[in-house]
Simulated scan of single mutants.
Amino acid sequence: MTFSICVREQYEDDEGTEQYRFGVAVTTRLAGVGTLCPFANEYGAVATQSLVNVNLGRTGIEYLEDGLAVGDALEALLQADDGESQRQLHGVDKNGEFAFSGEECKGWFGHTVGENYTVAGNLLTGESVIDATAEAYEESKDEDRPLAFRLADALATGHAEGGDKREELHVQSAALLVRDTQEYPLDPSYNDIRVDATETPVVDLQETLALAQEGHEMAMERYEEEYEEDEMTD
């Protein structure tokens, strides 16, 4: 399973209350990666890949919700996993980051941990894919754009650097999730986007994001008062 990025961002809402958002994005040269790899809630974000064990992601974010630190949660899951040597698992919570790459993952494989983010990948053309993805996110942190778009752009940079080396596999996919501690009248639809089967996954992800943002803005313009009052009518 190719490469992914997990991110934590801290911000203040309009009332000056401290909030967090967590995001995860992934792309691979297989179909349906959004059903397997990315997991996020208001407590953190986790990605499971290489020889995928979906329960590592599902249980990982449940552990974060229960109050475990991301390192403690994911290390405990790996220690109980007989396939640990073939797994990649990484993520973030409010206070930290964690990344693991088993010694039997297929090369090139590896990960990096930065301030507030993690990036990991396997079956890549080289380490530069991870570095480029991380650098693209780092450069976007001060931009006034939704995290979902910046995550997709980070994937695009890694993909342009070489991405998944299995060029014989033309059916590809990409996905992203973003979750906030802040509550909204209507959660932005562009925070949960998947492209399940295509030959151009990252471009399609970016185009779908733009359409989803347009649709969200139209819905809020038309129905914002009804959403806020929770009395939406036809």
Rank of each mutant, 00 (worst) to 15 (best):
V113Y: 03
A31S: 13
E217G: 04
E217N: 13
R87K: 14
A25H: 08
A219C: 11
E103Q: 12
E75I: 03
S101V: 11
V7T: 02
E12C: 07
G102N: 04
H111D: 04
E15I: 00
L124T: 09
A120I: 05
L74M: 13
T48W: 03
A25I: 09
Q182D: 07
D144K: 13
G102I: 06
P188V: 09
A154F: 07
A99L: 03
E221S: 13
E127M: 09
G158R: 07
E104A: 14
L74F: 01
N191V: 04
D204A: 15
D230Y: 11
V52L: 08
L89F: 01
L36S: 10
L147V: 06
E199N: 07
A219V: 12
Y190F: 15
V171M: 10
N55M: 11
G114A: 05
Y184M: 06
H111Y: 09
Q88N: 07
L51K: 08
Y117L: 09
E104D: 15
E62W: 04
L205I: 10
D234I: 10
I193Y: 03
T157A: 15
A174S: 14
H159R: 08
H159V: 06
M232W: 15
F109I: 01
L123Q: 09
V119Q: 07
A212V: 05
E207V: 09
D196Y: 08
G71F: 00
L64Y: 00
A134Q: 05
V24A: 01
D234F: 14
A174G: 10
T198R: 01
L56C: 04
F98W: 08
K106A: 10
E103I: 14
T125Y: 06
Q19D: 04
Q79G: 11
D81P: 06
L77Q: 01
Y137V: 02
N116S: 13
E138R: 15
A174N: 09
D180L: 03
T17S: 09
S128A: 14
L68P: 00
G16P: 09
S85D: 15
E226T: 05
L78N: 09
E115K: 14
G215L: 13
Q206N: 11
E161Y: 06
P185F: 02
A174V: 11
F39C: 03
L147T: 05
N41V: 03
T118C: 11
P201T: 07
E104T: 10
T200D: 14
G114F: 12
D230P: 01
N53E: 13
L169R: 15
G60P: 08
L186Y: 14
F98S: 04
G162D: 06
Y137E: 00
N116H: 15
T112A: 14
L147C: 07
Q86L: 13
V178Y: 08
I130G: 00
Y20I: 02
F22E: 00
G16V: 05
A156K: 14
R222I: 08
L176K: 04
F3H: 13
E115I: 12
V33A: 15
E12T: 11
D234K: 07
Y184W: 15
D187A: 12
A69I: 02
L68N: 05
E42C: 11
K141F: 01
E62V: 09
D81M: 05
D93W: 03
A99G: 06
S101M: 02
D13P: 04
V195Q: 07
V129H: 06
V7Q: 00
T27M: 12
A156G: 11
N122E: 02
V178F: 01
L78A: 07
G67W: 10
